[in-house]
Design a protein around this nucleic acid. Structure first.
Lengths: 247, 247
DNA sequence: AAAGATTTTTGAACATGTTTAAAGTACCGT
DNA sequence: ACGGTACTTTAAACATGTTCAAAAATCTTT
């Protein structure tokens, strides 16, 4: 097990990732074989498995990396934009901008993500930490804006916005228009719609329907953002995987 | 290539499927190895590949089979129920009822389905026929009801209902509550909500928002149901795969 | 029924993800 | 420096999805 007491371990881990990414970019998921990665990193295949439980865990590490990039890019947005609409749009656009270089490859990423079965799905328990970190971003989107949200919705709004965000990414993955321009237009169109919906939800008019809709969400526990003090502490540039097998 | 000029071919195909399903039910997707299937069917592994391009194509055949079952079960519903709500709920419930025996296994099914990359995803070109057949069902749901739907929405409603239906299935796949009771409750709650939303959409109040929302859907071409006369003719109990490799 | 063409089956081979026992290396306390 | 402990690496092996050239079976034509 890679306990990293000896710091060389972390380097090796990073080396494997650095070896894997170009292979992925060149030949896609299939061509990125464990043997090729190992050779490129100057290791035997078995060693790679010492650091990554599975080939797909390498993908997951990429996922975590771009998530960090995204968080960084969001700081800027969240410091500037004041309205809920601008903040939301900014955060979502940042994600797409960050991911652009990897578009050709992201289908493989999403393949892992979309599989409900899989430990590495964003909805799974194993991805909880990453998910919560992403949801915290949307919590900040809401809190930092002047828009007030009524209590029952407020609890779920970060989770809902995260889901919206996942929807955008899903769209983007499928989007084969040049430069993924359709995705940008899609964002421009859906964000205002969503904001409007949130506004409308305040009208007493919607009371009963909203109530019903929110009651539904109780069946989606993973959408709940735990209280800030109960969350895992933020780690500096943590692209580290969970403990490896056997530990 | 399996041209099926000799009718024995179809039998063999069926035999492979019959051999595969129990293996799937017992040990899940992983344990259902091609070698095991072949042995069970009394063939060599290579022969199995003569009939199914890929292991996942076998899964797709299951998918097509339950779809046929579903269509059958829907006839009953669609002959009886008159209101839009009852018809929609009936069709969705039928799907869940049909799929119940396969719940343990459906994650593997959905794994294939959810992968955007994959030829066999319900959103892909290769699945168009199956998808259109499913959407036609929802077209019938709407047409057979007394509810009138305004023109711009009407074009997309079957596709939207199909997506709703896919959402329910997604929920069901994840639902590990006993007997999947959460799914049934989920249906009971979401269907009325959806119906209400359709009703509301008629209010002039919603004009602009609806217009914007519908404009969005132009980017989802796969949601469009082609005109009835342009559709592939219905085939009796067709669980057949598309032409095999090389042809 | 024989020859020819087409469809089906085989069995071995290949590439890849993954496991594992054993060997190698670094660190730590004495 | 030594010995022990924990960490890292290796090479070979395994199971599985898949391919393929050749053989066998079946059908068609003469």
């Amino acid at each position: 097990m890679a306990s990293m007491k000896h710091k060389k371990a972390e380097q090796t881990r990073a080396r494997i990732l650095s070896a894997a990414l170009p292979l992925m970019l060149e030949g896609g998921y299939e061509k990125m074989t464990m043997r090729a990665i190992a050779k490129q990193a100057g290791l035997s295949p078995g060693a790679a498995y010492y650091y990554f439980e599975t080939k797909e865990h390498i993908i997951h590490a990429f996922y975590a990396q771009t998530h960090e990039e995204h968080r960084l890019a969001c700081r800027e947005v969240l410091d500037q934009a004041k309205t809920l609409q601008d903040r939301l749009k900014g955060v979502v656009q940042a994600q797409i901008r960050i991911s652009q270089p990897y578009h050709a490859v992201s289908k493989a990423l999403f393949k892992v993500a979309a599989d409900p079965n899989h430990t590495l799905s964003p909805f799974s328990d194993d991805s909880r930490e990453l998910r919560h970190r992403a949801m915290a971003l949307f919590d900040e989107v809401v809190r930092g804006s002047k828009t007030k949200v009524s209590a029952p919705l407020a609890d779920y709004l970060p989770g809902l916005l995260w889901m919206f965000h996942m929807g955008i990414v899903l769209f983007w993955v499928h989007d084969s228009s040049p430069q993924q321009e359709k995705t940008w237009r899609f964002i421009d169109r859906t964000v205002p719609l969503l904001i409007q919906l949130i506004r409308l939800s305040k009208l007493p008019f919607f009371g009963s329907a909203l109530q019903a809709a929110i009651a539904l969400l109780d069946d989606f526990q993973f959408l709940r953002l735990p209280a800030a003090d109960a969350r895992e502490p933020e780690v500096e540039n943590d692209t580290t995987a969970p403990p490896l097998r056997g530990s």
